[in-house]
Design a binder for these strands. Structure first.
Lengths: 163, 163
DNA sequence: CAGTATCCCAAGCGATACTG
DNA sequence: CAGTATCGCTTGGGATACTG
């Protein structure tokens, strides 16, 4: 009998793994602010309305995972400040943000339209994500085929559930 | 003085709104299973390893938001069964899933490679998401410009934080 | 099977106070 | 400013038992 997708373990699923890292309640909102250009601790805290303790903990995790970096900087004549910036690994989450934004703009937006317009700097057209294949074709959800890959693992046998 | 992005309220942010709907701990995993083709209550429960109570609650929310539909069906000679399927609105979350998957495959994958291969049915090439503008250009994160849109709202004044 | 109901523990998180 | 520490509430969610 052929192995189908639903025979596979979800344990090493890249979606689940990603959610383990960024899928907790405030983490993606913190990253959203980072993509907005927010850098300083207080600014994150005030914009998100969260406690210092929570923010400290989230920053710790994100730095640990290499998604943000904490750097000190001095403005002349000022105290030392710290800032949190996206790393390249963090910046690669932009498609996730964009996909979330597009869905939200389509389905859960107020009547007055999007609060932020995101456009291609060179031509001014709205930016979003598209499903594409490596040959450059635009792909619909229905045109996609999913099959077990090299990392596929069978999940532990259920004791043969008979209804 | 010009209004900048960081002056805006985050209250009506489409990313935040989307996360309010699907950003809770198990919800995206439930949807992942739905995209895998899982339909029946027990199958979701066994694959995710969650309790009935949790699953019931999540299904309730997702149906309420029009992301899943619950339908009864009868197999001849069998009891009535129920299944949960993605609606069109739910299927539109596929780019979100794909973006999460791609990031995970790049950054948090085991050495043995992806458990699932996702390919374009017609040409066999791997499928992912790409940032594009409406004029069809492929766009880099750095080529994007974000400005306040029609739904922009100023956030409540902070009492002028002076460091 | 597809849930509902109850009980209870643990994690998430805000509030507050304090520190370098 | 950029945190750390503590407290205590509230929610999330597992375990178990029961129902149509």
């Amino acid at each position: 009998m052929e192995t189908t997708l639903t025979d596979l373990s979800t344990e090493n699923c890249p979606i689940g793994r990603t959610l383990d890292v960024i899928g907790t309640t405030w983490t993606l909102r913190v990253l959203r602010e980072a993509f907005f250009g927010v850098r300083r601790f207080v600014d994150f805290r005030e914009r998100l309305g969260v406690s210092s303790a929570l923010l400290t903990e989230r920053f710790g995790l994100l730095v640990e995972h290499g998604i943000l970096v904490r750097t000190a900087y001095e403005e002349p004549g000022q105290r030392t400040r710290y800032e949190y910036r996206l790393t390249e690994k963090g910046r690669e989450l932009y498609p996730v943000m964009t996909a979330l934004r597009e869905w939200g703009e389509r389905h859960v937006l107020d009547d007055d339209g999007p609060p932020v317009l995101v456009r291609h700097r060179e031509c001014g057209a709205a930016v979003g994500v598209a499903l594409v294949c490596e040959h450059g074709h635009t792909v619909g959800v229905r045109d996609v085929e999913a099959t077990p890959g090299p990392g596929a693992r069978l999940r532990a046998e259920q004791p043969e559930s008979r209804s």
